[in-house]
Design a protein around this nucleic acid. Structure first.
Lengths: 114, 114
DNA sequence: TTTAAATACATAAGAAACTAATGTATTTTT
DNA sequence: AAAAATACATTAGTTTCTTATGTATTTAAA
């Protein structure tokens, strides 16, 4: 498990990527998917996820669809057009950012590597 | 310039890396160095940096040395032993985290790339 | 030469995003 | 029958950052 501060600020990008890949997902499903994809190294807590999903919906990036499963109602999220282009931007920006960070953290900036 | 949320949580790692490379640096110097290294894509504000430096010092990761430059006093920071091993850990963790994020963001997780 | 910009430190109010805890209810597994 | 997993949600408190402000010296420009 990574330290919490590392994951900060990346949650939005992860959610947008998941939805751009899978079309539609519900919250709990996202937490399980990320856990599975990362062998438990990234754990998305529900206390962080649900408020974010609500915000992204309020911002017009996501739309919801309620699907009854037995007596429960499952809430599926999917990207709007705006959310879709926002996803592309965020993902590209993050990949670019990783290049920059890699340069800082292991680039030949004067001394030997840490 | 990257969106702010992206940089969140990475400042500590950057500072520790800078000090592990350069031995000793003062705050303002760090802001300029990062700006230069990243072509202005990462801007460290003093409002974020100084409180962090104070905290790292309080936590025993950094020690300070005051050097008079003319009538001003410049405050140099360097790593303690604890800070040095903490730096190695943080940097390694971040590089690992980037691998994981890269896998999530562009890995072959079922659909075409975004 | 005086004005502006850069250097160099610092703090503080407020915002954003997350943690950890708690709550409800259903469904599945033991 | 009990426990665990599924599935939603909120909330108090913390951390960390932004934006603004403040002080003072030094260098560059007008």
């Amino acid at each position: 498990m990574y330290s919490n501060e590392l994951i900060k600020g990346t949650l939005k990008t992860i959610v947008l990527k998941l939805l751009s890949e899978n079309g539609k997902m519900y919250g709990y499903e996202m937490t399980q998917k990320v856990k599975e994809l990362t062998d438990g190294k990234i754990i998305i807590t529900e206390g962080a996820l649900y408020p974010l999903l609500h915000k992204l919906e309020a911002d017009g990036l996501l739309i919801t669809e309620k699907v009854p499963i037995g007596k429960r109602v499952r809430k599926y999220y999917s990207l709007t057009d705006q959310g879709s282009s926002s996803a592309s931007e965020k993902i590209a920006e993050f990949l670019d950012y990783m290049k920059t960070m890699k340069f800082i953290l292991q680039g030949d900036n004067g001394l030997a590597l840490g």
